[in-house]
Amino acid sequence: SVRTACEIYEATRYVTGAKEFNTAAFEFILRNAMKVFQDNSFVKLSTAAVAEILSRDDISVHSEVDIFDAMLRWHHTDEDAYLIGTSTKTRNLRKCIKESVLNCIRFPNFEPFVYCGLIQRWRILSKDEEDYLYSIWAGT
């Protein structure tokens, strides 16, 4: 099951003798990513595990929005981020999201109207970064 796959993947990450189990669980997760994202075992994964999953080219998702939603869902249960967020009394998502996880989001892969409609309101990118993004979409 999805839960078992996440648990095996996490538990065997640093076990040299369990490479095959780890690879099998990882591939199962990539193939069933949409189900994995919905499961409670997903939000319990470590930062390194989540970054590894979300950074893959061959993850089975419909669009970059699925990756973004998964990132947000995982982030909201990230205790470290919660502590940073409350200690600095900031709601700045950019400061709270772990860099390795943020780096998994491929902003140029969003449709511009999707970015403006769904993603922009999270205020993750700076003005300069957005300008750069628009220049990519404009094909310059």
């Binding site: 080219d57 061959d58 993850i59 089975s60 998702v61 419909h62 669009s63 970059e64 990756i67 943020l102 780096n103 998994c104 989001i105 491929r106 902003f107 140029p108 892969n109 300069d128 970064e129 750069y132 993004l133 990519i136």
Partner: peptide, 15 residues
């Protein structure tokens, strides 16, 4: 800016 990985136009195969 170009050094920021999340701004790279990277291939991902969507299903």
């Amino acid at each position: 800016l170009k050094s920021r990985p999340f701004l790279k136009n990277s291939p991902r195969t969507y299903i």
